[in-house]
Amino acid sequence: MEHATPVAIILLVALLAPVVIYIRRSKAGKEIFVRRIAGIDATEEAIGRAVEQGRPISFAFGMTEIGPLFYACLGVLYYVAKRAAKLKNKLLIPQRSPEAVAIVEDTIKEAYREVDRSENFDPTSVRFLSEEQFAYASGYMGIMHRENVGAAFLFGHFAGESLIMAEAGRQVGAMQVGASVDPEQTCFFITTCDYTLIGEEIFAASAYLSREPVQVGSLAGQDRAKLIFLVLIVIGILIATANSLLSLDLPNIDALINFNPGWFNHE
């Protein structure tokens, strides 16, 4: 179990402070600008195209376990489910994590209720396939081909199965939007999907689609919080340069963050 150092606690507070401030501002009705992200704009287009063709929509979380990334994707799924419910289109959610099945089911149910389409909710739309990576990927491929999916959303954490899944969508001619925080897999999505969200754009997607004040405010706040990292990077570069050029022995950023007074010492 990890325990924080004093500097890590200060850093935590410093990172969360702008988030709280911007959430309050956003709730107070202050307009916060969110730049356009083509991949998120394409969500609407993909759903519309699938509806026009009368083909179902699929939303896959990949290898995502329950955690912040899962909740970020859940926000997008909520939006997709609402649109699918409103346009009376079939929605399929192949699941890998059994823990997530109940949460996903509940979220979709709420989305259908939100647009007064509770009666159209299909409890079999959330399908647990397998916890094993390639068994899940083969199950997903099967669904894509059997159901002739028209729009596929691949959101979350992906590993070696990313390309297999994206290629399956491509084979059936589905419009695909891929989003992953794994840089190694993002390049596969770029080559195979129609639109790709890179890295943290996945966390912005829900705020962008819902325009909910809390989400938009926290998005603006986290952007400001990143400035702290920028400052730390610049300080780190200056220290490393000074140590190298002037033969100094200044402590680096890592030592600063791990600094421990006696009573905080790790055993």
Binding site: L16, G67, Y78, E212, S218, Q222
Partner: peptide, 21 residues
Amino acid sequence: ALVASLVIGFRVWLSLESSSF
């Protein structure tokens, strides 16, 4: 991604967002 994860964790912990769930 890490900063965003931290912020989402914070939001979920305090149940700040009502829209998604």
